[in-house]
Amino acid sequence: MGSLFQSEIVRCAKLHHEHIAHVYGFNRVKNGVTIAIMEVLQGSLSDVLLAAQSCGQYLTLREQLDITQDCLEGLNYLHQLPHQVCHCDIRPTNILLTADMKAKLSDLGEARLTDQVLVRDYVSPERGEHRPLTPATDVFSMGLTMCELFTGIKATYKLGTREALLKAVEHSVLYDICSQMMFRTYTMRISVVDALRGVEHVMDTPDYWNCPSKRFVKGKVNGAVQVTLIDKPDAW
């Protein structure tokens, strides 16, 4: 495991993106333990959410959207690499924040090396069934993390709680984005690009913020998946 972990650290050190926490290398200490040397940031999204719950000062919608956009851009970078990288462990603890609240994904690849780092609350259905990893695995975990960010409610694996968490997302368009990221069947989930496009649409079009009659649906144009806004039909 040590050499495999070191190889993973070396590979991660070659990744450079403003929303990926930079890994500089590794150091071996006593008893052959390998320690990753990485960028030090202010704290994690998990810390911010816990602090918000304790003092009642929650992030604004704009801050939530900025963090979401940062994470999706980081994921898109990983998924678009020539040798595609799946993060495998998206959750609030692994989203680090700078002093000015810019988000960076951290702990890349550790979940692929050992099952002991998996946190069941954020694991996609196919990951729990030990199926091959795909970008859709990250999409599911990111959708669940977004629900927690938008609602302030802690995600748990207990039966029915994921559905309840999703329903607690008040903004209709964000609800639709999250719901399509969290389909149980991974082939039905929208891509990171589609999710990013949807979030950017919300950020750029405030008129839709209070418009529950608009929903995102998945469509295909020239074989490429895209997200489209349509009017909500009566029989939706």
Rank of each mutant, 00 (worst) to 15 (best):
L149M: 06
D204Q: 14
V119E: 13
T93L: 15
T137V: 05
P206H: 08
I90D: 03
H83T: 12
Y157G: 01
W209V: 13
W209C: 14
S106T: 15
T187V: 15
D100M: 00
G152H: 00
Q180V: 05
H130Q: 02
A155T: 14
Q80P: 01
Q116I: 13
V192D: 00
G198W: 00
R120G: 12
L97C: 07
G128M: 10
L144C: 04
M203V: 06
C88I: 08
D176N: 13
D100Y: 06
R197F: 11
H87C: 00
L149V: 03
G152E: 02
L133R: 01
P82K: 05
P92Y: 13
Q80W: 08
A111V: 03
D115M: 13
E200A: 08
E110P: 00
R112D: 11
E170F: 04
L165A: 15
M101K: 14
L165T: 11
V119G: 07
L144D: 05
T205S: 13
L174K: 09
A136V: 03
V117R: 15
L96V: 04
D176S: 12
Q84P: 01
A103Q: 06
S124M: 02
A155P: 10
R162C: 11
E129P: 04
G143Q: 01
V199F: 01
I190T: 09
V119A: 12
P125E: 04
A111K: 02
Q116Y: 14
G152R: 01
T187R: 11
Y157L: 06
E126R: 02
R162A: 14
R91C: 02
M181I: 05
P206C: 03
A164Q: 09
H201I: 08
Q180N: 11
A195P: 10
T187H: 09
L159R: 15
E129T: 06
L144R: 04
L78K: 00
D207W: 10
V199D: 04
T187L: 15
T93N: 11
L113E: 01
T156P: 03
Y157E: 09
Q116E: 13
L108K: 00
P82S: 02
D107F: 14
S191V: 10
H87Q: 04
E126G: 05
V173D: 14
A136Y: 07
D107P: 14
D194C: 15
R120F: 08
I153K: 12
I177H: 02
R131W: 03
L196I: 10
A195C: 09
V193A: 11
V173S: 13
K167C: 15
L75S: 05
L133P: 01
C86F: 15
V173H: 12
